[in-house]
Design a protein around this nucleic acid. Structure first.
Lengths: 208, 208
DNA sequence: CAATCTACTGTACATTCGTACAGCACGGTG
DNA sequence: CACCGTGCTGTACGAATGTACAGTAGATTG
């Protein structure tokens, strides 16, 4: 479980079979969903046999877990690359930027996240929980350094970070699909940008 | 294929077996996904045997198709109940409200839609296309009566309608999940409201 | 009554899936 | 050399799943 295998050049050929399996699983899980991708497909994509997947991960569920831990790692690494200097807004902005760049560079992560978030799934050891914990750590660190407000509850700040980051990414494919349905406008005009905003609910009963 | 079976009281007992199957399928598809629900589960929920499902729908894929057509029907009926009088904003608002009420009354539709949106599912007349066509018809009707602007492309207006309606519904469970992770704040404060907005993209390269 | 159509049941079958397992090559260590 | 751990292959198997099909009861029609 030492996971020494993270070189800086993730060229598919050079990777350990274990890493190749994990990458293939991420790609396929993102594309077809976890339940929609047989282990045999992962094996084929990774250039190994099914037996090896079992040998390394034991269970499909464990493979999924490894994929999710890898995703959390990518978030943590992206945050770590961002400079932690300046005002609270500076730091938060730099981290937002770093995470956005990482997500833009690996669409499979976005696709997997979209499925993981939209599927209630088995609710245990969830990716959402892990990412929330990561974001909470982040917010907690900023607070301890006096760079984040202590007024609003921490859950709300985490929520803002995650929803704003992920909301747009999740909704964009739906928007693109709809735009595609009316093809004539896709050439001249750029697709509209989706803005996700959070608002403190004043009254829960009125106006849906 | 005459589908006489839509009484005004959808009490489960009174429905045709065919309708009961369709409803059970919608519920289970929404809850566990199409691939995640065996036909045997649908049969059990509907109180029939698997053979009858095959007898009525032929194929699981055809059953899914029937479920989706039913969903489109619900949208169309909701829109039809809204008063079509007053200014364009009035009409559009009334229809938005009617659809929102219908979605609030049947969460299974929302859940199914959430899943349907993220599964491209093979291009064919899928649910997003059908709903887009419905929304386009609606916008077209308003335009013909001079109640909707003819300036912006029709795809954009459809996009606004659908994204604003569905975006909030899709993101809300994610928000609730995150709030739940930090349980202490869920008691006193109501969960924040998610606002989805569309903005014409001025420059695609800057920021994010 | 005979014939037929329809809603419906229960079984059977081929396929696909996750997983278990026996075995092979090979490199390091006593 | 013998031993063993490790990465890896290929086969096999039980469980689950979609679908085909034969058959039954009851209402309708000639």
């Amino acid at each position: 479980m030492s996971e020494r295998e993270r070189a800086q050049s993730p060229r598919t050929e050079d990777l350990t079979a274990r890493a190749r399996i994990r990458h293939a699983a991420l790609d396929l899980f993102a594309e077809r969903g976890v339940d929609g991708t047989p282990m045999r497909a992962v094996a084929a994509r990774a250039g190994v046999t099914v037996g090896l997947i079992v040998h390394h991960f034991g269970t499909k569920e464990a493979l999924r877990e490894a994929v999710e831990l890898d995703i959390v790692d990518r978030f943590a690494e992206a945050i770590a690359t961002a400079p932690a200097e300046g005002s609270g807004t500076d730091v938060a902005g730099a981290r937002d930027h770093a995470v956005a760049a990482m997500l833009a560079a690996s669409p499979a992560v976005v696709d997997y996240l979209r499925r993981a978030v939209l599927d209630p799934h088995g609710e245990r050891g969830d990716l959402v929980s892990k990412l929330s914990a990561l974001a909470a750590d982040q917010v907690g660190g900023l607070r301890r350094r006096g760079l984040a407000s202590q007024r609003s509850p921490i859950g709300e700040q985490v929520l803002t970070i995650m929803i704003r980051q992920l909301g747009q990414l999740f909704l964009q494919p739906l928007a693109d699909r709809i735009i595609d349905e009316f093809g004539q406008s896709s050439d001249d005009a750029p697709s509209p940008l989706i803005i996700v905003r959070l608002e403190n609910r004043i009254d829960t009963s009125t106006s849906q």
